[in-house]
Write a protein that binds this DNA or RNA. Structure first.
Length: 403
DNA sequence: GATATTTGACCTGAG
DNA sequence: CCTCAGGTCAAATAT
């Protein structure tokens, strides 16, 4: 049963362990050193960031989306598009047909066809919620961006060498790879485009898009060297595994780990985090390999607050400087628009944003628009229906107390 | 002492 | 109804 296959994932821990191993000459495995929290924050959510950055903190996804939409030149498409493309590709199709796809496959399929959020609590993959306005460049077929793309991905040994011979590669694996790689690209793209962060700027100005991949990691860091991930390093064409790096829990917000568990599907333990903000319902699940490399991150809900200041700890919570209106319960920040599902994106591997559903939505902060560019009343309806209370959870313990 | 993490137990929902 | 798996709680422990 170890089959899970997934496992292998080919994650070479050894390498990962060696964060910085600039093998002379060969730039094979760039180390990913992410900038300290503030960098990420400024990059993705807390918007603050850079001077030039829009004052509103657009969600990472939004950024990404808008970036792509904005920059056709890059030929890079949104993650969704990438996925779509991947799914539409013969190979993907073949895989689907094969039926090896698991639940995830279903999700993807749905997305590829509708591109809409699964309000039912489905996962929303990165870039999924591009607002209609941004969905423009959605190709019916997908084009392959030079720097990275489903095609190259599919074309890559990662996919083919292992999958070609046999479509045994689980859909999940494929998805993971696509996701990760796309995320990588988005990450760097958005970084360049939207955030003139010193780090990024430097990287952006000094390297070509493609070079950025390896570069990003080098964005350097002040002191926080996050583990490196295989996926990131070497060229995207040959990395089977998609481990990205970064300190799992730092995306600008403060998280408190409240649990960890080994899930069946993955051999890696999954950690559960909650946003430390008092009323923030956001949670996230982080899966990491034994090395601590993040293999998957799933966000749930939306922050009902601005992200804490970089230097300060979350506790300050509400005292964010000028962050305009953070209407509680309704951050309808136009920019956040489609997704700011809490600015996540900090991590790159598999990033999923899950709309709060039922019990998770105690606060019901999200709005349909935010969740998916498409208005999906369901979500909200659900939220409201369930959100009777303020946010306190009165879950199971009730029973305990009763007894 | 306060806060965060770890970890085993418990609860819930799905099959 | 039972079992399994995922998710969460909260005491213990660490920082």
């Amino acid at each position: 049963e170890n089959g899970g296959g997934g496992g292998g994932e080919t994650v070479r821990e050894g390498d990962a362990a060696a964060p910085v191993a600039p093998r002379a000459g060969a730039p094979p495995r760039p180390t990913i050193t992410l900038p300290p929290r503030f960098a990420l924050e400024s990059l993705f959510h807390c918007g603050g960031g850079g001077a030039g950055a829009s004052e509103v903190s657009p969600g990472p996804l939004t950024l990404v989306s808008s970036f792509f939409a904005d920059d056709p030149e890059s030929e890079c498409r949104s993650f969704t598009q990438l996925l779509v493309g991947a799914m539409n590709s013969p190979v993907a199709a073949a895989r689907r047909t094969v039926g090896s796809a698991g639940e995830q496959g279903k999700e993807v399929e749905k997305r590829s066809s509708g591109g809409e959020l699964e309000s039912g609590g489905g996962l929303v993959l990165l870039g999924q919620n591009r607002p209609p306005s941004l969905a423009i460049s959605q190709p019916q077929y997908f084009t392959v961006p030079p720097g990275l793309s489903p095609a190259s991905l599919l074309d890559s040994p990662a996919f083919f060498s292992s999958g070609l011979g046999n479509f045994a590669m689980s859909h999940q694996e494929v998805l993971a790879q696509v996701t990760a790689q796309a995320a990588q690209s988005q990450f760097r793209m958005s970084s360049q485009a939207e955030f003139p962060s010193p780090f990024l700027t430097t990287a952006a100005t000094t390297s070509s898009p493609q070079q950025l991949i390896p570069k990003i990691p080098t964005l350097k860091p002040i002191d926080t060297v996050l583990e490196s991930a295989e996926g990131f390093q070497s060229d995207q064409r040959s990395q089977p595994t998609t481990t990205i790096v970064d300190k799992p829990v730092h995306d600008g917000y403060n998280w408190r780990k409240y649990g960890q568990k080994v899930v069946k599907g993955s051999e890696y333990p999954r950690s559960y985090y909650k946003c430390t903000n008092p009323n923030c319902p956001v949670k996230k699940k982080v899966e990491r390999s034994v090395d601590g490399q993040v293999t998957e991150i799933i966000y749930k809900g939306q922050h009902n607050h601005q992200c804490p200041l970089p230097n300060k700890r979350a506790k300050e919570g509400g005292s964010l400087p000028s962050r305009s209106h953070e209407t509680n319960g309704n951050l309808d920040n136009p920019n956040l628009g489609s997704l700011d599902h809490d600015g996540n994106f900090g991590k790159l591997n598999n990033i999923k944003v899950v709309p709060i559903t039922r019990k998770d939505q105690e606060s019901g902060y999200e709005t349909p628009e935010q969740i998916s560019g498409s208005t999906d009343g369901e979500e909200v309806a659900d939220v409201k229906a369930d959100v009777g209370d303020d946010g306190e959870r009165e879950p199971k313990r009730r029973n305990m107390a009763a007894s």
